[in-house]
Simulated scan of single mutants.
Amino acid sequence: MKIVHFTSVHHVYDTRITFKECSTLQNYGHDVRLIAAHDKNELINGIQVIGVGKGSSRRLTRMLFTTIRVFRECLRQDADIYHYHDPELMPIGLLLKILGKRVIYDVHEDVPRDIFSKGWIPDWLKKPVSLSVEAIERFVSKRMDAIIPATPFIAERFRTYNPHTYEIQNFPLLDELISHEGSKIKEHNNIAYIGSISEVRGIKDTIECLEQLNRIMPVNLLLGGNFSPPELLDQVRQLSGWKFVDYRGRVDREQFREIMSQSKLGLVVLHPEPNFIMSQPNKLFEYMSAGIPVLASDFPLWKQIIEGNQCGLCIPPMKPHLMANAIRYVLEHPEEAQRMGENGRQAAVTHYNWEPEGHKLNELYEQLMKPKFDNRNKRNRKQLTADSG
């Protein structure tokens, strides 16, 4: 089976796309290609990446010209199944369906809710944009062969649009982040945050918390990821607590594991934005799989996971003094911290890991290639042609 994944936004080293979904399907024996806004063709983790050129930093330019280049390459590949990962590629998904292709929409985020966290959209415009995006998603999703949401909350909405909706949750690869050095004693009071770095993801709160903590005890933040927007990095460098930050930039998976081996606690202290409250952040489960305690915002779903598995602490977000108190407690109670880390690791082993998700993904692909699907695909194509006419 020839499979093409395509994205105009995500990096070619995206964990869900390249290292989980594409690699899993390749391991099942399929011929997998990844089309992306990348500057060259190359093999990454055994996956053939087809670069269509770097995307523009200007959103509208990228959404127009990069998506056209991606579409042309999709046609050239002539795959059995196409699988796309960005909302801006929904028109490409529709065009491929009109041409009779099998198409999957992979929904990473709750995009209509995510609109309210976008600083570049004026506040007065966010609600109408959100409603418009949701209407477009509804129209397009009804015409896709399958929808793959990353969380149960997102899946609940898409099942009302398309019964062929299958949750493929973004749980970690089980042994990817656990230290190869066993239970090595961590000498320094390092805490970690790896992921997209922004104000709504708590970076300023965390730096203020570090300043408070270091009046009492030495604590450093090992920080990895890209700043959004990029100019935020210059702003936070002016904060007095920045001197306690070891900023590593964008980190690969090996560097991620190294940071985990050096850290006593992982942070997920996001603000209560609509898109965050019911999300399942990758880093939460990655910290658990690495065997370190978690400090997270006290959103109900997150509390259920963390307190239910006794693998960390939850605090109200946007309160640096409470964050400082919780971090100090974990660092001053190493035996309890070790139990939290072990509990998180055990929860990852028994429930929150990629292996069963990858199996479900391959089963879906096998179903889409069965003869009974061909009849449904022909009916959908007739409907699409009628709609477009």
Rank of each mutant, 00 (worst) to 15 (best):
P87Y: 15
D114I: 12
H164L: 11
P149W: 12
W120H: 05
T67R: 11
P172Q: 06
Q255S: 02
N27W: 03
A347M: 06
Q26F: 06
S297M: 03
A326D: 08
T160F: 14
N325Q: 10
A36C: 15
R16A: 13
S56E: 09
D246N: 14
S141M: 12
I3M: 03
L75T: 04
E258S: 07
K372E: 05
F19K: 05
Y193K: 09
H180G: 08
D374L: 15
E231Q: 05
D175S: 07
L99G: 09
H188K: 15
K142D: 06
G266T: 00
Q26S: 11
P152N: 04
R143I: 05
L64N: 15
L301K: 00
L131P: 00
M260N: 05
E336D: 11
K303H: 02
E187L: 10
R159D: 05
L233G: 03
E357L: 14
G93H: 07
L213I: 11
D80A: 04
C209W: 04
N189V: 13
H333F: 06
L331P: 13
P128S: 14
I191V: 15
K101D: 10
L75W: 07
I44R: 01
S263R: 15
E187P: 00
A347Q: 01
N45I: 13
K264T: 13
K20P: 01
L60G: 14
N309S: 05
I17S: 06
V236M: 03
L64K: 15
Y247I: 01
M340Y: 07
L322E: 07
P229V: 05
H83N: 11
C314K: 00
N309T: 10
L221V: 06
Q280T: 11
S279D: 01
L384P: 00
P218R: 08
F158D: 03
P230V: 07
W120I: 04
L60F: 15
L295F: 11
R159K: 13
P230T: 06
P229W: 10
P230C: 07
I292L: 06
D106Q: 00
P122Q: 08
Q26C: 08
C314L: 02
L301Q: 00
K370Y: 08
I168M: 05
H188A: 10
M278Y: 12
P281C: 04
G312R: 03
K101G: 08
P163F: 13
K283M: 03
V9Q: 01
G241M: 02
M144S: 05
D114N: 08
M323C: 09
Q238H: 14
H30D: 02
P87G: 13
I203Y: 08
L313G: 02
V236R: 10
V251E: 02
Y352C: 12
F65L: 08
S23N: 09
F153R: 01
V4S: 05
M278A: 06
L173P: 02
I47E: 01
A150L: 10
I98M: 11
E167H: 06
E211S: 09
K360P: 15
I98T: 07
E167D: 07
I154W: 09
A146I: 04
V236Y: 07
F139R: 07
L99I: 01
I292P: 11
H351A: 09
M369G: 11
T66A: 13
Y28R: 04
I259M: 15
F276A: 09
G224N: 04
R76W: 00
V219N: 11
A386M: 15
P371C: 14
W120E: 12
R62W: 05
P149C: 13
T7R: 10
H164A: 10
E156H: 14
V133H: 00
A324K: 03
L295V: 05
